[in-house]
């Protein structure tokens, strides 16, 4: 049942919706449109809505500043992080599931404690450790570091999704002669496909957009996109043309992936929170 609404309520709702949409979309429009504006036009106020686009910033960023390489670095780092965290996290969540359930429940809640540790607290010692092991400047360093951000969360998410798998199903599998290890690929993983998709997009956005670890644990050969963008940010001035082009290169792929995985993004975000 819905309340009957007066016309002014409707009008107010429409107004708030319009403001919310403008508020959300204009900043993204600004950065993307600036990436194809001429350097002088970027600072022009009021901004022209119609202008002749130029690809010169992208050209500079991709050829002179090596952003093609950063782009592939970002892909390598985030894909490795996704594979590693989901593999380890799903296995661990299954381990929790087949434990006596009370213990599993308790551990899976404690997992969230990991989120409370500030990134910087882990980052400095990790930097020193990787430096001594000569791992800075390899892909291993940022991938492992990104795992520290996501692995707790993925395990917790998977454990949450796994609670929904009815025990009867696992019992039936065991009656049919399926061992617990065999039940994992045959019964559990097929049912977890949506959960894996959710974890994929969430880990991807956290790894793709991560800055603090990448800033310190990579060198010129393994810089991901965020570090490339950060290098343009000076304390006093910013080269807006190049910066916007680099930022656009970073935003567009993840937004496209996010758009197609919309459903899983939303279910991943809400899964833990609403069930508590």
């Amino acid at each position: 049942m819905r309340f009957k609404r007066k016309w002014y309520t409707k009008l107010m709702m429409a107004a708030i919706t319009a403001i919310a949409l403008i508020w959300t979309l204009v900043p993204v429009y600004i950065v993307i449109s600036n990436s194809v504006r001429k350097t002088l036009e970027i600072k022009e106020m009021p901004p022209k809505l119609i202008f002749t686009p130029t690809l010169s910033h992208f050209e500079k960023v991709l050829t002179l500043d090596n952003f093609g390489k950063y782009f592939s670095n970002s892909i390598i780092i985030s894909l490795s992080t996704i594979v590693l965290t989901i593999l380890a996290g799903t296995l661990a969540a299954y381990g929790l599931k087949i434990c006596k359930s009370a213990i599993g429940q308790r551990i899976s809640n404690v997992l969230l404690l990991g989120k409370m540790v500030p990134t910087i607290t882990v980052m400095i010692p990790l930097f020193i450790m990787f430096n001594q092991m000569h791992l800075t400047g390899t892909y291993v360093a940022p991938v492992l570091a990104h795992c520290s951000l996501s692995l707790f969360f993925v395990t917790w998410l998977m454990a949450n999704f796994m609670q929904d798998i009815p025990n009867e199903l696992l019992e039936a599998a065991s009656v049919m002669g399926c061992s617990r290890l065999k039940a994992f690929p045959l019964v559990v993983v097929p049912l977890l496909k949506p959960a894996i998709a959710s974890a994929t997009i969430l880990v991807m956005q956290s790894s793709w957009n991560e800055l603090l670890f990448s800033l310190t644990l990579t060198n010129i050969k393994t810089y991901p996109l965020t570090v490339g963008v950060a290098k343009y940010v000076g304390a006093l001035s910013v080269d807006w043309g190049k910066c916007s082009a680099a930022a656009t290169l970073t935003i567009v792929p993840i937004v496209i992936v996010g758009f197609f995985m919309q459903k899983y993004l939303v279910s991943g975000i809400t899964a833990g929170a609403v069930k508590g």
Binding site: L21, V28, N209, E210, C243, I251, V255, G258
Partner: peptide, 24 residues
């Protein structure tokens, strides 16, 4: 229509969020 548009800021790197607002 609104829901997918709304999730865009979530996917933008915080670094770039700072950058966009610095421009603003």
């Amino acid at each position: 229509i609104c829901r997918p548009l709304m999730t865009i800021p979530l996917l933008v790197s915080p670094l770039i969020v700072g950058l966009i607002w610095r421009y603003i």
